[in-house]
Amino acid sequence: MKLFLDYDNGLGEQSLKSLLPFFEPLSFTPEAPGIERETVSIPRINGVVLPQHPRDVIYKERKITVEFYLNSIIAENFYQFRRELYALLVKPFPYYISTDLLPNLRFRVTCDGNFSIPKEKEKNFVTFTVEFNNITGLAESKFTSLTKQNFDGEHWSPGMNIQMRDDLEYRFKNRKRFQVYNTGDAYINPLEHDYNVTLWAAGKNVTIINHTNGEKLKIEQELKKSQRVSFIKQYTVINKTPIKTSGRLPGLDIGMNKFEILNTNDFEIIFDTRFYYA
């Protein structure tokens, strides 16, 4: 197997073999996703009641265990290679790891160094495990919705819920009603996920509604088509300046989401998002 690291620093993902060729990854084991949900007990009702909508259920952080093999050939190298791996994996910031065993998916992780690489007497080789913390509790697609969803370009893989259709759209122009497909396993939250929506519209009180989940946003000022409207978490901005709104940008439920745009006949909207997987 191959292991890749991406420090989100503009260099892209790099293979462990290219960075430290004497280390060989042997296995990649994420824990099952862990869910945290609310339950309520009601008299004369069997079991428990689930008051939350599934989109409000929380995925907890989880462990990913990676097993490695090191053969330093000579003893002097062992100590140097060990220190280099510590420096490579133990970082004060989160980063991404991925493997060719789960192509086109990556995991946002931290590694706080709660592992060691022991050297046994005359042996210059060892097998050991490193524990990563998948802080989001989910994997995410390496590519976004603007990359066509099929198996031709090697950007998407079996197990990523790719549909047997080639007409999914994420860019819409002057279409009052349209559908946006969330191909992942989890609700996409504008406050949390890599979910980028851009709007150009002419009109006053332009409103974006997701009828599937009931979420909507109204922009409470007149827009010109030349203005680029962006959505950054809970803020709606034009040229980095927040503007007045009510509601919030609708997120994406799992599967098909039915959208409607009100109070404009001249607009273009783009949904550029990653997808999230258990």
Rank of each mutant, 00 (worst) to 15 (best):
D100P: 06
Y96D: 04
N104K: 13
N114H: 05
T129C: 07
F68V: 03
T127Q: 14
T99A: 03
V126F: 04
F128D: 12
E67P: 00
L105M: 10
G113W: 08
F93I: 11
F128H: 06
K63I: 11
F81M: 09
E84H: 13
V130M: 13
C111Q: 13
P51N: 02
Q80K: 14
E67T: 14
R62Q: 13
R106P: 01
A75N: 07
I73Q: 12
K121I: 09
V49F: 10
V66D: 02
L89M: 11
P51F: 07
K91H: 04
D112L: 13
E131T: 14
K91Y: 01
T110G: 02
N77K: 08
L138R: 13
Y59M: 06
K63C: 03
Y86E: 12
L105T: 03
G137N: 08
V49Y: 09
N114C: 01
I73T: 15
D56T: 10
K123N: 10
F81P: 00
C111L: 14
T110L: 10
L89T: 06
I74K: 14
L88M: 06
T136W: 13
P118D: 11
Y69P: 00
V49P: 00
R83K: 14
Q52S: 06
E122Q: 05
I58C: 01
E131A: 09
L101M: 14
D112C: 04
S98N: 10
Y79D: 11
E67F: 00
N114V: 05
N104I: 07
K121C: 01
D100W: 12
P54M: 04
F132D: 08
E76A: 14
F81W: 07
E131R: 11
N124R: 01
S116R: 08
E131G: 07
R83H: 10
G113M: 08
E120L: 12
I64Y: 01
I117M: 02
L70E: 08
F115S: 08
F132Q: 07
K91E: 04
V109W: 06
